[in-house]
């Protein structure tokens, strides 16, 4: 859609009309797909036991937010441009490699997932789509599916591919979105292109500092202990949690992007 708008701008008045139409339908162009309510077994252990989570239904964005979409957001919400954002909401790495505060530049493809965005900025973007960041369990549940199965997590080939993807994602710029088949819910690129912010990532408490009303540690993840992962074969997921929980909400990593979810209306 962004391409259409840019092209149409070159054609004078008809272009402006097209632009107006495109702007009016900006949100209609973004796809969210419903995921049914489920009793989901999380790979994260609670009190040493595999957690069965009752997840209400929600709808998830089919693709991660792209560079072009984020540029459009910045044009409409200038308070999130890197030279105007409050330092409480983003550090100096925020969109640092963009050519200007509003233009990503030739280094970036429009269909590439946006990265170098803080948790605060990701939340603000989702709010602009009348959505929110997914909670960890929602993300994990959606990412458990592959193109044919709602829960493909016991497939060693699939797990090996995810591991290869996540290791590669740490070393190079994100590849374009939607080049691989979407999963059974119609959602693409979960776990393959970038790390993705979740709303509650900071409350996963990966170290022994985690506390609960009763006293003891509740979620001790990855801190040298694979035991906190009920499913030990999901090494890619462990890497993902470890990387996310090491971040501050103002951090902007070249490998962390996001997508949004919506609650049912």
């Amino acid at each position: 859609m962004r391409t259409t708008r840019c092209t149409s701008l070159r054609h004078g008045l008809p272009g402006l009309v097209l632009l107006a139409v495109a702007a009016a339908t900006a949100h209609a162009d973004v796809h969210y797909r419903p995921l049914p309510a489920a009793a989901f077994r999380s790979a994260l252990a609670i009190d040493g036991a595999s957690a069965r989570i009752a997840l209400p239904a929600f709808a998830m964005r089919t693709e991660p937010v792209t560079v072009a979409e984020f540029a459009s957001f910045l044009a409409q919400h200038p308070q999130w441009q890197r030279d105007r954002v409050l330092p409480l909401y983003a550090n100096a790495d925020y969109l640092r490699d963009w050519q200007t505060p509003t233009v990503a530049g030739p280094e970036f493809a429009n269909r590439q997932p946006v990265t170098q965005v803080s948790w605060f900025a990701a939340r603000a973007y989702c709010a602009s789509e009348h959505a929110r960041l997914p909670r960890w369990y929602e993300w994990e549940y959606a990412a458990a599916a592959d193109a044919t199965r709602p829960d493909a997590r016991s497939d060693p080939v699939r797990n090996q591919r995810l591991l290869a993807d996540i290791l590669r994602a740490g070393g190079e710029p994100p590849r374009p979105i939607a080049t691989q088949p979407a999963n059974v819910y119609g959602i693409a690129d979960l776990g393959s292109l970038v790390w993705e912010w979740t709303e509650d990532y900071a409350a996963m408490f990966p170290n022994a500092d985690a506390r609960v009303a009763g006293g003891g540690p509740v979620l001790a993840l990855c801190g040298g202990s694979a035991l906190a992962f009920a499913a030990k074969n999901e090494y890619a997921l462990m890497l993902r949690v470890a990387a996310l929980t090491a971040l501050q909400p103002i951090d902007a990593s070249p490998h962390v992007g996001f997508r949004c979810v919506r609650d049912p209306e």
């Binding site: 409480l88 605060f120 709303e199 509650d200 409350a203 408490f205 500092d209 609960v212 509740v218 979620l219």
Partner: peptide, 24 residues
């Protein structure tokens, strides 16, 4: 949620309504 994030404070409702896991 934003206030908590700015303050470095996070919490997570425990399944079954048994309070929160949180930092201090």
């Amino acid at each position: 949620d934003a206030l908590g994030a700015v303050l470095g404070i996070a919490w997570r409702a425990l399944p079954g309504g048994g309070g929160y896991s949180h930092n201090v």
